[in-house]
Simulated assay, not measured.
Amino acid sequence: MRTLITALILIAINMAINAKPQCQGFNNYDDKVTIVFTDDNAGEQYTVSDVKLIPTWRGQEYQATSVKATVKNGVATVTLIFPHITQFSNPKVTLRINGKKTSFKVCQ
């Protein structure tokens, strides 16, 4: 029984470590950039910090002006707001989720 519990805990930790944000939406309207992503392995705690948008054509980083996260049934939905930017080329977002650094390509 103890082995089974240990195995289940290790599986849960592995799933949390391998969790990856999935871009759901992107727009550049109303003088701001809005990006929405989900994470299917959110668990109960989901803290997002150090959020930056990198439009790779210039290499410049833009700090998020707003970060809103909600978790429902283990799925996190996060809305990120950045200043208005007029040009993009395969942008990506870097951030920390529960303290762990990760990144994802922005869907366009």
Score class of each variant (00 low, 15 high):
M1R: 05
R2T: 11
T3Y: 05
L4G: 04
I5L: 15
I5V: 15
I5S: 15
T6I: 15
A7F: 10
A7C: 13
I11F: 10
M15H: 15
A16F: 03
N18D: 11
K20M: 05
C23Q: 03
Q24T: 10
G25R: 13
N27F: 03
N28P: 05
Y29L: 06
D30F: 04
D31T: 10
D31P: 01
T34Q: 12
F37R: 00
D40G: 06
N41P: 07
A42Q: 07
A42I: 06
A42E: 07
E44S: 14
E44W: 08
Y46R: 09
T47C: 04
V48Y: 01
D50N: 14
V51C: 02
K52Y: 11
I54P: 01
I54H: 03
R58S: 10
Q60K: 03
E61M: 05
Y62H: 11
Y62M: 06
T65P: 02
S66N: 12
S66D: 09
V67E: 04
V67D: 11
K72M: 11
V75W: 04
T77P: 00
I81F: 00
F82H: 06
H84V: 04
H84P: 01
H84G: 04
Q87N: 10
F88G: 00
F88Q: 08
P91S: 05
V93T: 05
T94H: 02
T94K: 02
T94D: 10
I97Y: 02
G99A: 09
K100R: 14
T102V: 02
T102Y: 03
F104L: 09
K105P: 00
